[in-house]
Amino acid sequence: MSFLEGNMDVLPKKLREVLHKPHAIRILATVGRDGVPDVVLRDSLVALDDHTLAFAETSDADQSSQNLTQAIWYDGAVAVSVVHGARAWRIRARPWRCLIAGPVFKRFLLAARVARGPDADIAAVWLLHADTVSDESLAAQLERDVAQRPFAGAHLDCARFVAENA
């Protein structure tokens, strides 16, 4: 852990691999000053390293950009959900940096132009540091549920005894 990065969680290797797959679903959730949530797809979201997520915002005026700015100004959090097939992760993160120029910015811009045409543009690349990462695949959720509430979570019809020839 580096002193500037606070108490960050490590992005699991499998999650980092999934974030390189084009068909993974990447959802960014932010919240405005008024407490109103905003949820958007962010296809460009990737892991830059073990701790850092990065994605491009197209416009400063977009609600997610506004909320990200608000979050970095006032130490607010955002949430990211990544889904790929049966695997899913929930990440709580904090905006760490807003890039408006430089090598990383250029990389995202060029990727946007490959994907959307030569006139595609981006306003900024945001870097997030993950506070917590949890495995949200169904199996992991059930496992957690059983471990935390062994007799409270499941409906009893799932546990009923059924005679073999009934």
Binding site: T69, I72, W73, W96, R97, C98, I100, A124
Partner: peptide
Amino acid sequence: MLLRDGTS
């Protein structure tokens, strides 16, 4: 100089 929020 650039600050973390992108402010120059």
